Amino acid sequence: MQIFVKTLTGKTITLEVEPSDTIENVKAKIQDKEGIPPDQQRLIFAGKQLEDGRTLSDYNIQKDSTLHLVLR
């Protein structure tokens, strides 16, 4: 499925993911596309910070959802 990741600069990254993918996995995909190390990434969805060990389906993230990427 496709999800979107919006950065603070207003750029939107499109990712191909599975509901069973972990947040860690998603961060690795963002690193592949953007070169941002996962340890600098914070992903936010519906006002919640997403934890590495959980999956997209744990957070009820569905296709065409938009996550927000904050760098630390």
Rank of each mutant, 00 (worst) to 15 (best):
residue 50 L to E: 00
residue 33 K to N: 08
residue 59 Y to L: 09
residue 17 V to E: 01
residue 43 L to E: 00
residue 71 L to S: 14
residue 33 K to H: 03
residue 62 Q to E: 12
residue 10 G to K: 09
residue 8 L to T: 06
residue 69 L to I: 04
residue 15 L to N: 00
residue 69 L to G: 01
residue 39 D to A: 05
residue 69 L to W: 02
residue 35 G to D: 10
residue 3 I to F: 02
residue 59 Y to R: 01
residue 39 D to W: 07
residue 72 R to N: 04
residue 69 L to S: 01
residue 45 F to A: 08
residue 29 K to V: 14
residue 35 G to K: 13
residue 11 K to L: 11
residue 40 Q to N: 13
residue 54 R to Q: 09
residue 5 V to K: 00
residue 56 L to R: 00
residue 56 L to Q: 00
residue 30 I to E: 00
residue 64 D to I: 06
residue 6 K to M: 05
residue 63 K to E: 14
residue 54 R to Y: 10
residue 3 I to K: 00
residue 41 Q to M: 11
residue 8 L to V: 11
residue 64 D to E: 09
residue 57 S to R: 09
residue 72 R to F: 04
residue 7 T to S: 10
residue 56 L to P: 01
residue 2 Q to M: 04
residue 58 D to S: 05
residue 32 D to E: 06
residue 46 A to R: 05
residue 45 F to N: 12
residue 31 Q to W: 07
residue 68 H to Q: 07
residue 50 L to G: 01
residue 63 K to S: 13
residue 13 I to L: 08
residue 37 P to Q: 05
residue 32 D to H: 12
residue 5 V to F: 06
residue 54 R to F: 07
residue 9 T to G: 12
residue 51 E to N: 04
residue 21 D to T: 10
residue 31 Q to A: 10
residue 16 E to L: 14
residue 65 S to L: 08
residue 33 K to G: 10
residue 22 T to W: 07
residue 50 L to Q: 01
residue 18 E to V: 07
residue 27 K to T: 02
residue 60 N to P: 10
residue 32 D to Y: 11
residue 21 D to E: 07
residue 71 L to N: 08
residue 52 D to T: 08
residue 2 Q to N: 02
residue 40 Q to T: 15
residue 61 I to D: 00
residue 9 T to I: 07
residue 11 K to V: 13
residue 68 H to Y: 02
residue 72 R to G: 07
residue 8 L to S: 06
residue 12 T to I: 06
residue 1 M to Q: 06
residue 66 T to S: 05
residue 65 S to I: 03
residue 48 K to V: 13
residue 12 T to Q: 06
residue 12 T to F: 05
residue 15 L to T: 02
residue 4 F to K: 14
residue 38 P to N: 05
residue 72 R to D: 09
residue 71 L to F: 07
residue 39 D to F: 05
residue 38 P to V: 08
residue 55 T to R: 15
residue 47 G to F: 12
residue 28 A to E: 15
residue 37 P to K: 04
residue 16 E to S: 07
residue 15 L to M: 11
residue 17 V to S: 10
residue 32 D to F: 03
residue 63 K to F: 04
residue 24 E to G: 09
residue 9 T to M: 12
residue 44 I to G: 09
residue 28 A to T: 13
residue 48 K to H: 15
residue 18 E to T: 08
residue 44 I to M: 08
residue 14 T to K: 08
residue 3 I to W: 00
residue 21 D to M: 04
residue 13 I to V: 09
residue 6 K to F: 11
residue 66 T to R: 03
residue 50 L to N: 00
residue 34 E to Q: 08
residue 56 L to M: 06
residue 51 E to K: 09
residue 33 K to D: 11
residue 44 I to S: 15
residue 24 E to A: 04
residue 68 H to M: 02
residue 65 S to E: 07
residue 41 Q to Y: 04
residue 7 T to I: 03
residue 6 K to G: 12
residue 60 N to G: 11
residue 17 V to A: 03
residue 20 S to A: 10
residue 61 I to R: 00
residue 46 A to S: 05
residue 14 T to V: 14
residue 69 L to F: 02
residue 18 E to Y: 15
residue 43 L to V: 08
residue 58 D to L: 15
residue 29 K to I: 02
residue 26 V to W: 01
residue 21 D to G: 12
residue 19 P to W: 03
